Amino acid sequence: MDKNNTRTLVKRAALAMVLAALVLMEERTVPVCNIDTTSLEKCRPAVTGNNPPPPGNKCCRVLQVANLECICSFKSYLPVLATTNPSKLEALLTKCGVTTIPPACLGKIKVP
């Protein structure tokens, strides 16, 4: 194998390693409590600010399939819920048609 072939092979191997690293660095999400927790971000506008807009359909679909008792037990770890006033969270759930709101969703957040 001559020098040019070796250089080409080394360049291709380096490119393959970079591409593999980029794929591995891609943010992975883990399903928790029946949902992908990053999907809660769809609800952020509806709980942000003094006069939040009504929740969108995507937000409500997420909340309707989530195991809310489970989600709210982790709320101090979930950015969209950890910074949310419990009354805004209750209003969001009500607007999305959630009729049974677990007590864990309404209590104050205990920082671990």
Rank of each mutant, 00 (worst) to 15 (best):
A21R: 00
L63Y: 01
A20M: 09
G56L: 05
R7P: 04
T38K: 11
C43F: 05
C72L: 02
M1V: 04
C43E: 08
T37C: 12
M1S: 06
S73E: 14
C43N: 06
L68K: 03
A16R: 02
L93A: 01
N5W: 11
L40G: 11
P86A: 11
V62N: 07
A104Q: 06
T83R: 12
D2G: 15
V18D: 03
N67E: 13
A46F: 08
R7S: 06
R7E: 09
N85T: 02
Y77L: 15
N34C: 08
F74R: 15
T38C: 11
V32Q: 07
P52A: 01
E27S: 10
N57K: 09
A13W: 02
L40S: 11
T83F: 05
K11P: 04
K58C: 10
M17A: 15
N50Y: 11
L78N: 11
D2F: 04
V98I: 09
K42I: 08
V47G: 02
T6P: 06
M25F: 09
P52N: 00
T99Q: 15
A14S: 09
E27M: 06
Q64V: 10
L68V: 11
S39T: 13
T8K: 08
A13H: 02
L15V: 10
P79H: 01
A20T: 11
V98E: 03
N5D: 13
L15F: 07
V47R: 06
G56A: 04
I101S: 00
C96S: 01
K3N: 12
P31A: 12
P54S: 06
K42W: 07
R7W: 09
V10M: 02
L24D: 04
P86K: 07
V47A: 05
C105S: 02
N34A: 09
G97F: 03
M17R: 05
D36F: 12
V47L: 07
T100Q: 12
P53M: 02
K58D: 15
N50S: 13
T99S: 15
A91G: 10
R44Q: 14
P103R: 04
C105G: 01
A16W: 00
I109P: 08
M17H: 06
A20R: 00
E27T: 10
C96Q: 00
L68S: 05
P52D: 02
I71Q: 07
N57E: 12
L81K: 05
E27L: 07
E41C: 12
L92H: 08
R61K: 14
R12I: 01
L92Y: 08
L81S: 03
A82I: 00
K95N: 14
N85S: 04
P52C: 00
Q64T: 13
M17C: 14
G49N: 03
L92C: 10
P86N: 09
V23C: 09
N50R: 13
G56Y: 05
C33V: 00
L63G: 04
G49C: 01
V30Q: 10
I109C: 10
T8H: 03
K108I: 11
T84D: 06
C105M: 04
K58M: 13
E90Y: 02
P102Q: 03
A21I: 02
N5V: 12
A46W: 06
I35C: 01
P55V: 12
